[in-house]
Amino acid sequence: MSKEIVIMIIGMAVVTYIPRMLPFVMFRGKELPPFLQGVLKNVPYATLGALIFPAILFIQEDIWYGIIGAAAAFIVAFLGANVIVVVIGSIAVLSVYSYFL
């Protein structure tokens, strides 16, 4: 292993771990102001929106790939399926799509 790469990996590990860990230690057992609590409770759904879009459109060069994958996932999820079924269902739909392409 190259020494430079190992130093880089350790540096990356440290700067990745600190933001993950700090809130769990800093805010443990602390009551934050109600407005801030409300914002933090909104974060998961806002994050999901930002994580899905627009990135899902660009998973392959063919933009239809992302559109069909997203549509399949939305429909299967809307019908009330479990997350794993949504994942496997979208993979299956896209496999069929790329097979006929």
Binding site: Y45, L48, G49, L51, I52, A55, I56, I59, Q60, Y65, G66, G69, A70, A72, A73, F74, V76, A77, F78, A81, N82, V83, V85, V86, V87, G89, S90, I91, A92, L94, S95, Y97, S98, Y99
Partner: peptide
């Protein structure tokens, strides 16, 4: 083809959690 179709997996999971 399987590699390509699996690239949707995490996004499908996000959708499955959000909907």
């Amino acid at each position: 083809t399987l590699q390509e179709s699996m690239s949707v997996a995490l996004y499908a999971m996000f959708v499955g959690l959000l909907v």
